[in-house]
Nucleic acid binder design. Structure first.
Lengths: 346, 346
DNA sequence: CTGAAAGCGCTTACAG
DNA sequence: CTGAAAGCGCTTACAG
């Protein structure tokens, strides 16, 4: 026996391997300057004893917690689920762990809640999802505590603060181009809520595509929306009861596109026969409804993986090195998902 | 200044308050036997210095990590989202933090993944969601590591292992009773997949309700399903094309009920006019579709809160005290959510 | 390439 | 009711 009860410690490994604990520590942390035979011997003992360094001891001595925090607001959002999925997997690969905290964006004690978590856990980094990543109070609390952050799809980038996002403008342009290439000219657009920057970005992509194809935008075909099923259905009712109906609708997210589908069905309009419908997000239901929805897939899990990497590898070099702002704000490629809800205009 | 840079430690507080660090520790851990004036003085200094004990130090010295682990499999499941929401809030209230880990139920290195997390973090407890809570390998790994667990809605309870659930049989019985009280007699049932115990439980509640109302069960009205939209639609197509249609359908989860709604719409059957439809789960879309779905709400967040409490307060008394099995397996009250998809039979 | 010492910031016995 | 000492299990300088 190498230890009286309990799990093995670094001392057990050192004794068994006939080296000092410092050498064991070196091997475990992949530090250079250890003879290969020594390293092998240590690793063999580590394996035999099933030794794993204790996070609390490493953290206390080394100042790194191997913890990444994920702050989020809306628990029902699929976005958060995907973020978490990507982040938790990448963390595991890198020997980190993910601590999650659900906050209210407008809680009076938001500041305190963040402080408590940061002071107690000392996470090595924090991932912020919308709308928390756009909340000045949250950002200030984290900055003051010196906790590195990565913002996921923030409204706008902040100088010096790392972020990951996709290109909403481009994606919206692409999906509009798809409709245009299918011969659609009367294309309606259902906007998102004005307080989300994605709304404006997607609309910009839409208008840009129209313009570059010399298609004039009919203001009557642009409807406000709120990124909800309900608002999509309502907007569609407006659009589809016009004397001159659109041949296609671009709902700027999937929930609204599903609302459009429901409205069309209720009005007896066949999709895509009489109306093409496209969405944005590639929500799980987008593939399940009838007809399956043409949409844009956000690389959310990949964005989260990238966020973890930025936090883990971020400040490796000297902190006074000039930061490259382009390296700080990553844009990940999206994907056009073409399904049955879009077809050639007749 | 009480400290050269960095954040304040227990030593700073002790010095400032004119007591020993042991006394500060006592106050912070709500230990009895501290004079009120001393306590007040310490708390005042704690407040002034904005002192928060460091988790890694507490963990290393005290053997408690103040971390609760949440192991889950399906990231898209709304269930997990609600679990997390409830757990993270209750953890905060109790001074704990939630570490999440997404696992594959059939990963070859599942065992290792769990061991690594447990050995590194030493969480004070672990919450397991389906299907992981029914995986013998997972349970064995955790038992051997001595990590207390709470199972959320496991297939079946295990002696000595705490669990939280709702009463599926009862809930299914209640919602069937609702249909019966509305005058329905030809009630169809769409089952869940046989490998999930909830499937059998809900069917049992259904048949029990029929029997106690002396309504004979027509085997033709029972269809298999897979808890998916698709399977619900398919089953409904079968059921609704019979020469003698049912007047109501009980789909044993909401996703399938949505499929029934879609099938009815396609067949030109009005719901609830010509067909009542009820589901189970109260998924977010259940309230958004037309007509809004009558269903059963699982108290998922509450179940998670209870799970956290069981872990935090669980082993307070001496561990050799006789465990009360009834106390170990909690059943939380569900809620019948009556909306517009169910109405009187005509 | 390797190690002995000090220390991270708390809690756990143990005294008084 | 309060405190001095030891120790949890690692890593960080610092030597050699």
């Amino acid at each position: 026996m190498t230890t009286r009860g309990g799990s093995p410690t670094i001392v057990d490994v050192a004794r068994e391997a006939g080296v000092s604990i410092k050498t064991v520590s070196r091997v475990l942390n992949h530090e250079p300057g250890v003879h290969e035979s020594t390293r092998d011997q240590v690793l063999k003992v580590v394996e035999a004893l099933r030794y794993r360094p204790k996070q609390s001891a490493r953290s206390l001595a080394g100042g790194r917690s191997f913890l990444i925090g994920l702050l989020y607001y809306d628990p029902s959002a699929l976005f958060v689920g995907s973020v978490q999925q990507g982040a938790t997997l990448r963390c595991r690969e890198l020997g980190y762990h993910l601590v999650v905290e659900s906050l209210h964006n407008d809680a009076p004690d938001l500041r305190q809640q963040i402080d408590r978590m940061v002071m107690a856990l000392r996470p090595d980094g924090m991932i912020l999802t919308p709308p928390l990543c756009d909340n000045p109070e949250v950002l200030a609390a984290l900055r003051e505590s010196g906790t590195p952050c990565v913002l996921m799809s923030p409204e706008r980038d902040i100088r010096g603060v790392p972020s990951v996002r996709m290109d909403d403008v481009h994606a919206a342009e692409e999906i509009t181009n798809l409709l245009l290439s299918l011969g659609h000219r009367r294309i309606a657009f259902i906007k998102g809520p004005p307080d989300q920057s994605a709304s404006a970005a997607r609309f910009e992509g839409f208008t840009h595509a129209l313009r570059s194809h010399d298609v004039e935008l009919d203001p009557e075909l642009v409807q406000p929306g709120a990124f909800t099923f309900q608002s999509g259905r309502d907007a569609a009712h407006q659009l589809l009861s016009r004397r001159q109906r659109p041949t296609a609708v671009f709902a700027s997210n999937d929930d609204m596109a599903l609302g459009v589908l429901a409205a069309a069905q209720r009005l007896g309009l066949s999709v895509p026969g009489e109306l093409s419908v496209v969405g944005f997000d590639d929500s799980p239901t987008a593939a399940l409804v009838w007809p399956p929805l043409t949409t844009v897939r956000q690389p959310v899990a990949e964005m989260a993986r990238t966020a973890v990497e930025m936090l883990v590898f971020g400040h490796k070099a000297d902190p006074n090195a000039p930061v490259d702002e382009t390296e700080l704000h990553k844009v990940l490629p999206h994907e056009l998902v073409v399904r049955d809800s879009s077809t050639r205009a007749r």
